[in-house]
Each structure stands twice: as structure tokens, then as C-alpha cells.
């Protein structure tokens, strides 16, 4: 029955791992903006184009 010490230790460690993961995600700001990612994931992937001209973005801005 002393296996229960082992199990307790494991369960607390696992719980602590998830808890630390939660703290890290809060600290990194994952909960600051909970809306935009939900929109972003719906954007379609773009087709890769092999046209070399198009790969050079055109500088549309000229200073006044």
C-alpha cells in the first residue's frame, strides 16, 4: 500500500506541471487577447506563387 506515496507524489507533480504551464501562458500574454486568434485561424492558407516578379514586393510608398 505504500505505493500510494508514489502515486500521490506523481499526481501532485503532474498537477504542478499543468499549473506552471498555466502560469507561463498567462505571463506570455495568451489571455490578453482571446478574440483575434479565433479569427486568425479561419484565414485560408495562401497559394505559393512562383512568379519571381511578384515575389518582389512593390514599394508603393514614396515619401512626400
Amino acid at each position: 500500500m505504500s505505493i500510494i506515496y508514489m502515486l500521490l507524489a506523481i499526481s501532485v507533480v503532474v498537477a504542478l506541471i499543468f499549473f506552471v504551464a498555466f502560469l507561463v501562458s498567462v505571463k506570455e500574454g495568451q489571455y490578453d487577447d482571446v478574440y483575434t486568434p479565433s479569427v486568425r485561424m479561419l484565414f485560408e492558407d495562401e497559394l505559393v506563387k512562383n512568379d519571381p516578379e511578384k515575389n518582389q514586393p512593390v514599394n508603393k510608398v514614396k515619401s512626400n
Partner: peptide, 11 residues
């Protein structure tokens, strides 16, 4: 513009 590396929106 190629000088822009990345941009992120907070809606």
C-alpha cells in the same frame, strides 16, 4: 513593403 517583418493585430 519588404521592410516590414511582421505585424500582429489585437482586435
Amino acid at each position: 513593403h519588404r521592410a516590414i517583418k511582421s505585424s500582429q493585430v489585437d482586435f
